[in-house]
Write a protein that binds this DNA or RNA. Sequence first.
DNA 1: ATGTCGCCTACGAGGCGA
Length: 268
Amino acid sequence: MPFGKITLDTMKIATWNVNSIRTRVGRVTDYLQRADLDVLAMQEIKCKPEQFPVEAFEAIGYKVTMHGLNQWNGVAFASKIEAEDVEIGFTGMPEFKDVLEARALGATFDGVRLWSLYVPNGRMLDDPHYTYKLEWLDRLAANTAEWLEYDPDQPLALMGDFNIAPLDTDVWNIDDFAGSTHVSVPERQAFEAFEQIGLRDPVRERIPTGYTYWDYQQLRFPRNEGMRIDFILGSDAFAERVTSAEIVRDERKGEGPSDHVPVVVTID
DNA sequence: ATGTCGCCTACGAGGCGA
């Protein structure tokens, strides 16, 4: 047995929209080490594979698995252990303007199936991007239902920037969001669909309120005018193993932060 | 004060996306 599969006692997993890995590599690797994460799912890496600063991750003992096409979107994992069964995108993932964007990356880590997801923003309620967002979520939910049916016992989690605030308390003032994306009924229904097929939010179960994103504009962070739009949605087999959760608000502070912060769970 | 940031092209500043 020269190459037995690594089995971890516990696994600390996080999702983080890093808003450019080239700009943020120092902060991300610092946090990886400080938090001692086993797996980090990243979104908005905003680069092609050859532009990703892989060396900085390898220097601290992490492997990188990524999917990036250009300066937009882009998803990745950094992990101490090997990524297995890597999948780019999901079956029937919609295109936007004839392009399949880099918004979904799946991989298995020590038997745990994870997806790093960057859900389309939607832009405006009357924009084609909004229709794209809803279709994209619908296709993701259909795939997820099949994955759960195929192997209900495999721990599975969808992790990422969902660009939806499911509850009124997930934005600083719901009245300011009348007619906006992220809080519309169809978007919230699309989010609830994941719960209806059996996923749970182990972070919400432990941390009912609190934001994961604050816009750079208009002093949103100092005023604590944020949104909760980044989630880890787990199957029962995943959620039952979660022992703790954290939203790392401090990562919005200091020099050169992302506009999002890490959302973390530990499973045993 | 549209109180920002990051990418691109192409070398200065504007456009796009969030």
